[in-house]
Write a protein that binds this DNA or RNA. Structure first.
Lengths: 268, 268
DNA sequence: ACCTTCTTTACGTCTGATCTGAAGCGGGCA
DNA sequence: TGCCCGCTTCAGATCAGACGTAAAGAAGGT
């Protein structure tokens, strides 16, 4: 068993978690995962037995078992002899897992709650990350931050480019903390950002995103001003939160004029 | 397929992530996971082929594949046809996963770094969580917090009881945020806390843990004082950080008097 | 009503075969 | 020489079928 030099053979992973490279198993995971998250089988319910799933998904029982194992690893399922395979309660789902988060489609009843809670998490993490980044960012990371802020043009029509710049900005902040734990949160932030852009949340007040806010953070990081970076990031996220709150309130009102929509924005 | 009423059949999960309930597969995951984390096979290296692993671990190839699949889900491995199964770079490991964190034994070269980075994460998360908890904690959660602070007796000799009280305090704070994303972090905080206690980090200055600090936080939460809860939690974690920093510096000096130990406390 | 078997069930594990995609080699051509 | 193309090889991916095993639920005795 000689060690081979590591040579990346998957230059462009599609952006998502590439834990299952191949086809059939990956598709089985996706299919089952989406159904579970969609609530086809509510938490606590027993899903069909393995042979039945194999038939429905058109794969062998071994592949079904692989998929179930992956989903168990994400906290969605629990298996036991004679009990079948059951959907675990929502509290145990690994919601920080990008896959699990992404399986919540735009129309999902809980998407409002997901967004609200992620925003709270970001309000806790990102200011601290910005402060650390101000102390540790490399010159290249500073350049990336400034370039990403520059690319957030208010009149930009290319929504994908906007998203990409936004994503790169926030991921670079987390990268620059040089803290592997903080970097783990890049996935969930990217996913939630993507969902936001798919929704158009970022444009609720007419302006796409806060270009100034991003610049103020980037400049504070560039001059090593930890307190300033933290403060500007806080300010930016407060704005973000206000925007999101207004958006979701409107959406809830439109769907359910009587009051708060079920599973929508919680009473924060 | 009738839905069965949910009836918890595993009242007491042993505290760890119970994704693999059974024996052989769980053991295979543990065995492989520990070896990978221990660095038997460095990142980028190809681990032995499946039949060989099956022989070494004393299980069938199917079970090995199950284990590999679980570890791929935790970001430790990547498999591909003809490439074999390789250890992924450290940056891609899911370090927030309690299992992955716990596989870093007390003597692991990276344990100092793990501890430092987790502390930074806690300094970001827990003050914000305390503020949210002050707004949302139920009376029962408040009682739990006060009881846990009460149990942190300076003269307590039962280290397990101390750990349990400390753990319950911090997990209850996260619970009280009523934020599922924040609750995801209970696992990693519990794991790191456990490692701290196993090391004796909490006693480096003669006193076990800051009982007063916990009480001040609990009382602020009890009276709904979000700003106060945040402030006291920050103060407590600063103390925690100072203690840990001193401990790790001493440990690094003891092991490598010439300077910073490899992989120990990074230049923060 | 309670406890003790006993049966049933569906996941857990094993065996062994076949399929597939990518690396590496070698031949052919400009 | 140097590049392109197809063949072989390899190791994971998938499949098929069988048996093991623990726990739920029924059956029976006290």
């Amino acid at each position: 068993m000689r060690e081979k030099p590591l040579r990346p053979h998957l230059r462009k992973s599609a952006g998502l978690n590439a834990s299952l490279p191949s086809g059939a198993a990956r598709e089985a995971v996706e299919a089952l995962g989406r159904r579970i998250v969609a609530g086809i089988w509510p938490p606590g319910a027993t899903i069909p037995i393995e042979p039945e799933l194999a038939q429905v998904l058109g794969v062998s029982r071994a592949t079904v078992r692989d998929a179930v194992k992956v989903l168990s690893g994400k906290g969605l399922l629990r298996t036991a002899r004679r009990y079948g395979t059951r959907v675990r309660p929502l509290e145990e789902w690994h919601l920080l897992d990008p896959d699990v988060a992404a399986w919540h489609g735009p129309a999902h009843p809980r998407i409002g709650r997901m967004f609200a809670e992620t925003t709270e998490l970001r309000c806790a993490i990102e200011p601290a990350a910005a402060a650390l980044a101000a102390q540790r960012a490399t010159p290249e990371q500073v350049r990336t931050l400034l370039a990403a802020a520059e690319a957030l043009r208010p009149g930009e029509v290319d929504i994908v480019a906007l998203f990409e710049a936004d994503r790169r900005f926030h991921c670079t902040i987390l990268d620059a903390t040089d803290n592997l734990m903080m970097r783990q949160l890049q996935g969930i932030i990217t996913t939630i950002l993507r969902i936001s852009y798919e929704f158009g949340v970022q444009k609720v007040d007419g302006r796409p995103v806060s270009r100034e806010g991003h610049f103020l953070v980037a400049e504070a990081v560039a001059r090593g001003d930890a307190a300033g970076a933290r403060r500007e990031m806080e300010r930016m996220l407060d704005l973000n939160r206000a925007i999101a709150e207004a958006y979701w309130r409107n959406r809830a009102m439109a769907e359910n004029p009587a009051g708060a929509a079920g599973g929508g924005w919680p009473g924060v």
